[in-house]
Amino acid sequence: MQTLNFDNQVIWFDESLISQDQAKQAFDAEYWQQKNKIIGSATGRGTTWFVELDTIQAALRHYRRGGLFGKLVEDSYLYFGDEKTRSYQEFELLKVLQTSGVNVPKPIAARVVKSGVTYKADLLSEKIPNAQDLVAILEDQSLSGDTFYAIGVEIAKMHKAQVNHTDLNIHNILIDMNDKVWIIDFDKCDKMAGSHWKTKNLERLKRSFLKEVNKRNIQWQEGDFQELLEGYRSV
């Protein structure tokens, strides 16, 4: 990992995936537009831009607050040091998960822009090619017991690395065209000791299945979650 410091900015980047010159401009969507490298976008709290790097497809995300407070302070956070910023912590956590063999996006670059006692943040991470989240898939078709088993295995690998995914839901689990399971979106997640929180992760995930059954009538049933738990317990 390399680090750049300039103009109240700190940028961390993987030099095997992006050059220093490109890393300096990587967080400006207009830069990618001018290069004709934008390949798509997704809208959530803000716009995530999908861009084509020389080595990899990437997702560019600006950190924004949710909820009522987010309407007042959209994208600024109190600064307590570089290593406590949300972009740095997610960048580092993705590296830990990769080392632990969990299927997560590769961290490419992270940025912090400091202004007095606050900062704004961005992350550039791998866009998983040819993948859909579980909601999109289950709206159209059911999944096999083997796939749910594989999802459980991947969650167990994450838990074995002691990473608490505080927003584990079926929007954050992807399946690619090779039936490989991926876990994404590790903002505000962290390594934690013990095991009490692991059950809460699984309970949250089950609630998200039930929510989408009621909301979108996805093709899912209780037995699918039992297959997932079988995979989880196998690790």
Results as ranks from 00 to 15, higher is better:
residue 189 C to Q: 01
residue 119 Y to G: 02
residue 55 T to L: 13
residue 86 R to T: 13
residue 13 F to P: 06
residue 70 G to A: 13
residue 200 K to C: 01
residue 67 G to K: 14
residue 11 I to S: 03
residue 60 L to F: 13
residue 194 G to E: 02
residue 5 N to Q: 12
residue 215 K to A: 14
residue 13 F to S: 03
residue 157 K to L: 03
residue 122 D to G: 06
residue 171 H to L: 11
residue 69 F to R: 13
residue 160 K to W: 00
residue 67 G to F: 10
residue 1 M to D: 01
residue 156 A to Q: 03
residue 212 E to W: 10
residue 112 V to N: 10
residue 174 L to H: 07
residue 135 V to P: 07
residue 86 R to G: 09
residue 63 Y to F: 10
residue 195 S to L: 04
residue 47 T to F: 10
residue 146 D to I: 06
residue 144 S to P: 07
residue 63 Y to V: 03
residue 192 M to H: 03
residue 186 F to N: 01
residue 89 Q to D: 00
residue 110 A to G: 04
residue 202 L to P: 07
residue 33 Q to W: 15
residue 166 T to Y: 11
residue 198 K to H: 02
residue 63 Y to H: 03
residue 58 A to E: 04
residue 109 A to F: 08
residue 77 Y to K: 11
residue 125 S to Y: 06
residue 107 P to D: 02
residue 184 I to W: 01
residue 83 E to Q: 13
residue 36 N to A: 11
residue 75 D to K: 15
residue 146 D to M: 15
residue 41 S to F: 11
residue 72 L to A: 14
residue 216 R to D: 04
residue 227 E to M: 12
residue 153 V to H: 09
residue 197 W to A: 00
residue 41 S to V: 02
residue 201 N to G: 10
residue 129 P to V: 05
residue 70 G to E: 07
residue 46 G to D: 12
residue 224 D to L: 07
residue 84 K to W: 10
residue 48 T to G: 02
residue 214 N to G: 15
residue 35 K to V: 11
residue 22 Q to L: 14
residue 144 S to W: 14
residue 180 K to P: 01
residue 176 D to W: 12
residue 153 V to N: 07
residue 104 V to N: 00
residue 28 D to H: 08
residue 174 L to Q: 07
residue 182 W to H: 05
residue 8 N to P: 04
residue 131 A to W: 11
residue 184 I to T: 03
residue 135 V to K: 12
residue 32 W to K: 08
residue 184 I to K: 01
residue 114 K to V: 10
residue 195 S to M: 09
residue 207 R to C: 05
residue 72 L to K: 14
residue 81 G to H: 11
residue 35 K to M: 11
residue 46 G to Y: 08
residue 220 W to C: 04
residue 64 R to I: 14
residue 177 M to V: 14
residue 32 W to T: 06
residue 111 R to L: 01
residue 204 R to G: 09
residue 173 I to G: 00
residue 128 I to V: 13
residue 66 G to F: 13
residue 230 E to G: 03
residue 180 K to H: 07
residue 219 Q to T: 04
residue 217 N to E: 09
residue 23 A to M: 07
residue 116 G to N: 09
residue 15 E to M: 13
residue 204 R to L: 05
residue 96 V to Y: 00
residue 154 E to R: 08
residue 102 V to C: 01
residue 80 F to C: 14
residue 152 G to K: 08
residue 127 K to E: 01
residue 227 E to V: 12
residue 83 E to C: 08
residue 139 E to P: 02
residue 213 V to D: 04
residue 31 Y to M: 06
residue 43 T to G: 03
residue 194 G to W: 04
residue 164 N to T: 05
residue 210 L to A: 14
residue 201 N to K: 05
residue 15 E to G: 03
residue 209 F to G: 02
residue 142 S to C: 10
residue 216 R to V: 06
residue 211 K to E: 08
residue 201 N to E: 02
residue 33 Q to I: 14
residue 16 S to K: 15
residue 171 H to N: 15
residue 150 A to M: 11
residue 193 A to I: 05
residue 58 A to H: 11
